[in-house]
Amino acid sequence: MNLPLALFLIASAVLALNSTISSVLPDYYALYTAFAFPVLFLLSPSLWFYVEGLTADSPWQLHHKQLGHYVLLAPALLISVMIIFLPKDIHNAIFILDEEVNDPFVSTLLLGILIMMILWLIQCAYTLLKIVRRLNQYRKKLKDIYSNHDKKELNWMNWLLFISVSVWLSSLVTVFSSSLFDHALFNSNTEMSLSVLLIWCITHFGLQQKPAFTDLDDGDIQDMSKEHDNPSNDTHSPTKKYQRSALGQTQSARIAIKINSAMEQDKLYLDSNLSLQKLSKHLNISPNYISQTLNETLSVSFFDFVNQWRIEAAKPKILANNSTVLDIALEVGFNARSSFYKAFKQTTGQTPSEFRKGHANS
């Protein structure tokens, strides 16, 4: 997945150079615009493939069948060739001075650019929706597999998407505002700052992030992956979600007893790295059966189930008030103070300090 990440970073960097090239190297600006236009159409598919690889259940690779996502690159290259053949004075009139040029070739070129920009906007919107949907499915799957996912939620991706949309929209608004009102709402420095921020964010976070599911054994979550990735499945309805499962109610009830026993007697929740796979191996029960039991019989995800046990273990420690909140969080299996606060608030409706004060007064 490093290839689409590299393509996205390179494309962003090239587009960020627009104001610099026009002011510092004006003689090369015509060549730059011809080169930068098709680069614009690398952004959306490259970002999508990076997210797809980052959230994949198994090692991800770019296949030739996926290259269809770059279909807009072909007509963009054709327009790029047309831009190259423009005389310098006409190029300056169109792209720098924003003057009207009465020429059939120029009119065809401008119409082509307009159509491609509309298609690019549609592609951006479609890609954004796909990424949001993919991330939602990914985060639901995390809660079914891991008891702690502080470094796996990809919350930084939300900011990345926000910055990406801001960069793209600011560029678009600049074009239209300069054409309609003879001045730009966003100057070149603003666009450059947003672009640099975008590149820094995805470089800083993207190069550190690793796919969450690559540490699982092959086949352990294959069935679960199909359930999450199949749009026809109603993930809010456990009955439909597991309708093909052979697990019966009696067997599910026995598994529920074993799961609770593993938590109460073996205190597996104290393991901060506890996962569905680890619990499956401990009980010698299929991970899919455990997930189905949790969702159908106990009406809770694996993540919430384990954290409920951790919160119950933390309550007497909070009331004792002999340790800091961070120490208590780490003792009962959380990886961070923030995740403990969030889980405690969700479970009890109070913060740890509010819980302690409430019981002190009672």
Score class of each variant (00 low, 15 high):
Asn2Thr: 10
Phe8Lys: 00
Phe8Val: 01
Leu9Ser: 04
Ile10Lys: 06
Ser12Thr: 15
Val14Thr: 12
Leu17Asn: 00
Ser22Gly: 08
Pro26Ser: 09
Asp27Phe: 13
Ala30Leu: 10
Leu31Pro: 00
Leu31Met: 12
Phe35Met: 12
Phe37Arg: 03
Val39Ala: 15
Phe41Ala: 11
Leu43Met: 09
Leu43Thr: 02
Pro45Val: 04
Glu52Ser: 05
Thr55Val: 08
Ala56Ile: 00
Asp57Phe: 06
Trp60Gln: 10
Lys65Ala: 12
Tyr70Ser: 04
Pro75Met: 07
Ala76Tyr: 02
Leu77Gln: 03
Leu78Gly: 14
Ile83Ala: 13
Leu86Asn: 11
Glu100Asn: 02
Pro104Leu: 02
Phe105Pro: 02
Leu111Tyr: 04
Gln123Glu: 08
Arg134Asn: 06
Leu135Thr: 11
Tyr138Lys: 07
Ser147Asp: 04
Lys151Tyr: 03
Glu153Ala: 09
Asn158Val: 07
Asn158Pro: 02
Trp159Cys: 08
Phe162Tyr: 09
Ile163Leu: 15
Val165Ile: 10
Trp168Gln: 12
Phe181Val: 13
His183Phe: 14
His183Ala: 11
Thr190Asp: 09
Ser193His: 11
Ser195Met: 15
Leu216Asp: 15
Asp217Pro: 06
Met224Tyr: 12
Met224Glu: 06
Ser225Cys: 06
Pro231Glu: 07
Ala256Leu: 08
Ala256Val: 10
Glu264Asn: 13
Lys267Asn: 13
Leu268Asp: 08
Tyr269Ile: 00
Ser272Ile: 05
Leu274Arg: 06
Lys281Asp: 11
Ile285Gly: 05
Pro287Phe: 00
Asn288Cys: 07
Ile290Arg: 02
Gln292His: 02
Leu294Ala: 10
Phe303Ala: 09
Val306Ile: 14
Asn307Ser: 06
Gln308Ser: 05
Trp309His: 11
Lys317Gly: 09
Leu330Thr: 11
Ser338Ile: 06
Ser339Asp: 12
Ser339Ile: 05
Ala343Leu: 03
Phe344Asp: 09
Thr347Met: 05
Thr347Cys: 12
Gly349Arg: 15
Gly349Phe: 14
His359Pro: 04
Ala360Glu: 01
Asn361Gln: 01
Asn361Trp: 02
